[in-house]
Design a protein around this nucleic acid. Structure first.
Lengths: 140, 140
DNA sequence: TTTAAAACATATTAAACAAGTAGGAAAAGA
DNA sequence: TCTTTTCCTACTTGTTTAATATGTTTTAAA
């Protein structure tokens, strides 16, 4: 019942791109050092995001990545589902209909609805704002 | 991000005991055949529930198990946390404070709150009632 | 008093998954 | 040309999952 590093790093990566969006592409090397994540591992993760069109890349020296759309257009759910795969708490096809299996399915459905309610309502824009609030708080 | 068979089977096992509670102990053999789950695997799972005092056992021929308390005293959360271990979506101790890690933690916390809201509010009694409603529906 | 049914205990296994490393090739600016 | 960067694919190491397997102990019933 854990979200893996793949999904967690993907979210931090996307938020990093949203934060350091200056028009210039952001290199993975910079992201890796800011986030203290292996650059090689980030390469694999951003490859998924790239193929899905979530980011755009510029190859070659002084190349890098940037978000394909505005931060408010990415929900946490989109990013996690892409990198983690389906975020449901059970594989419904595995859930038995025998015994009392069909009753417990209701539990999993309610959990999934609750999870979706959270992750589909938070965007990268929200996360950016939370960052600023946090900074404001500590700088008073 | 999946609940394993251990937790899922534990819930169905506990609900089975709640359902077939006649005063007589319920044998795992019967649970296994009703739920179509390996009896040997169920033994391992009920051993956890037994050691935690969730069920009581009677050894020997015509022995079996029964719930230690009333169905309404068991939440889904109690059963899942016991068998699955901690149900949080991330290990907070692993979550970095560097980069923007501290912002994404808020996301995981909100997810966890949403999950807890569901699983801590549903009891075995509720599941029993859902079963009856389902049966009523189909028998009209 | 034997027998069979049941709980209890522990070891083993095969497959999948997680979390990276490793070693390069191709593109492009300086 | 050199260096930085993306891009691509294979490999590795450890852990977890979902069971099997092989018994021992207890106890009601025949």
């Amino acid at each position: 019942m854990k979200i893996s590093t793949k999904g967690r790093y993907a979210l931090r990566l996307m938020l990093d791109l949203a934060t350091y969006n200056t028009g210039e592409p952001v290199s993975l090397k910079n992201v890796a050092s800011r986030q203290e994540i292996s650059e090689k591992y980030l390469e694999q993760i951003i490859s998924i995001l790239n193929k899905a069109g979530f980011v755009k890349s510029i190859r070659g020296a002084s190349g890098g990545y940037f978000l394909a759309k505005e931060p408010r257009e990415y929900t946490v759910g989109m990013i996690l589902r892409l990198t983690e795969g389906d975020l449901t708490t059970v594989d419904y096809k595995d859930e038995s209909e025998v015994g009392n299996g069909y009753v417990t399915v209701k539990v999993w459905q309610k959990m999934d609805e609750a999870i979706n309610g959270v992750i589909d309502s938070i965007t990268l824009e929200d996360l950016k704002n939370w960052q600023t609030e946090e900074n404001d708080f500590y700088s008073i």
